[in-house]
Structure formats: C-alpha cells, structure tokens
C-alpha cells in the first residue's frame, strides 16, 4: 500500500509541474542497491522512471552507514549488482536529458553565463551557462558575457550533449 501511494503521489507531482510548466526541468534523486531491492523491484523503479517525463537522474549507489535501519534489511544487494544498476540508470539519465534537451531546441530562453571556461579539449575557447530550466548551454568565450543573463535561441545539441545557442539578434554560438 505504502509503495503504491508513494508512486502515485510522485507521478501526480510530476504531472502537476508539467501541466503548469510544460518546459520545466525535473531532476530525480534515486538510490540503487538498497537492501531489499530485488531485481524485480529495480526493474519496477526503472520502468517507472522511464515512463515519467523527468529530465535527468542523480543516481546514488547505496552504501552502508552505521546506526541506520537499512542495515537490518535483507537481502543485501551485491556490490556488482549495485554497480550494474547504477550504470543502467546512468544510461537512462542520459537518455532522459537528451530527450529533454531535444524538446528545447527551437525555443528561446535566458542563459546565465558562468565564469568557468568549459572543460575538455573539444570545448576549448568556449564558455557555458544554464537556462532558467537548467539546460546547459555552450557558446564562444566572450568575457563580456560572464555573469550576464542573455536571451538566446536554443539551436541544437553538440556531440557532448550541450546546447548550442544563438544570441537573439546576434550569432554567438559558433
């Protein structure tokens, strides 16, 4: 009963957010490998998340903590199963993020550009920022944009999974 209630409540909250804010970004914290998580229960969690219109997952691999109730629950999930489940949900998260980003291409958004230069050799000379709804955006480095909010058009997704943009009116994405 408790489980059903919980799952319905979660789905209903997500539906409410999407009803009022169709472009809202929704992140999910999820633990894998908690004691008692059988293969079947994990698959249920996977299927549930797969159906939800959420945008990304933060996957935590369960680890034992002293003085917690979980230590009394059986069966304990093996280390290899914990790692495998984490991997599966990370792949699901990438898929969700990709789908969310794709749903944003062609929209206008406001980006807050950050100071940090984007990491990675292929991103040299670029800078990044986030839209209101947490789409990570990449643009050509321009010190004038640091810590500024800027209206942009979201134009497409790079191989690294970052959103390219055009400044509304002026091209900054290339």
């Amino acid at each position: 009963m408790r489980r059903r209630y919980k799952r319905e409540l979660y789905a209903e909250r997500v539906a409410k957010i999407k009803e009022l804010m169709p472009h809202a970004c929704i992140g999910v914290d999820v633990i894998v490998g908690h004691p008692g998580e059988t293969e079947a229960l994990f698959r249920e969690t996977y299927e549930f998340l797969n159906q939800m219109p959420v945008s990304y997952l933060h996957v935590f691999t369960y680890s034992e903590r002293p003085n917690t109730h979980a230590l009394t629950i059986r069966p304990v999930v093996s280390g290899s199963a914990r790692a495998e489940r984490s991997k599966i949900l990370h792949i699901l998260s990438d898929k969700k993020r990709r789908a969310f980003y794709e749903s944003q291409v062609g929209r206008e958004a406001t980006v807050l550009f950050e100071e940090d230069v984007a990491a990675g050799a292929t991103l040299a000379g670029m800078m990044q920022g986030f839209t209101e709804n947490y789409v990570r955006v990449i643009a050509k480095y321009d010190p004038l944009l640091i810590n500024e909010t800027m209206p942009v058009l979201l134009t497409g997704i790079t191989a690294e999974g970052l959103m390219e943009v055009e400044e509304v009116g002026v091209l900054v994405g290339h």
Binding site: H23, D29, V30, H34, E132
Partner: peptide, 14 residues
C-alpha cells in the same frame, strides 16, 4: 525558475 529536483530514492527505502 521552472526547475525542480524531487527525490524518489527507490521502492523499499523510504
């Protein structure tokens, strides 16, 4: 901003 982060954790945990 329209961004929510909502813990689900997993079925037997909460």
């Amino acid at each position: 901003v329209p961004h929510f982060h909502v813990p689900l954790q997993s079925e037997p945990t909460r």
